[in-house]
Amino acid sequence: MSDNHHDDEHHEHSLKPHIFNLLALFGLTTLTWFSAAYLKFGEPWDNLIALGIAITKASLVILIFMHVKEATRLVKVCAFGGFFWIFLFFAYLVGDVLTRPGTTTYEGWQPDVRKAVEAPIHHGHGGGHEGGHGHGEGHGAGHGEDHGHGGGH
């Protein structure tokens, strides 16, 4: 068993792919820096290029420097699974932030959400008093006043 194992390893390793990989990484780094600092393709493209090159570089390091290209399927899943999982988190996070009312970047989302949020404030007078009575006399006055201020806008 262990004899096979040695043979595998013996003719497996050469430095050559790693040298090419290093040169490719140098090239990509230069490209991303040059494109961001000098070429400037405008609003979405610059960011997409920078991120695309970063993902390519990371994949090269994982596949070649870290020998994942020759590794078992299980190791491949481990190597990329973490990235996939955190990407899912980013997706949910950004999804939430972009659809929040008042987010600066996407004004288009605002009106319908705002309506839903602001509606009760306009009717605040009635709602406040009813709630106040339900809970008890002492609190009722306070509630009414708070809502009075809100309505005054």
Partner: peptide
């Protein structure tokens, strides 16, 4: 993928809350 149900009453967007 369900953690957002703790945030229904924070300022999480209603769309995220629905999901």
């Amino acid at each position: 993928l369900v953690w957002g149900h703790h945030l229904f009453l924070s300022s999480q967007s209603v769309y995220a809350s629905l999901v």
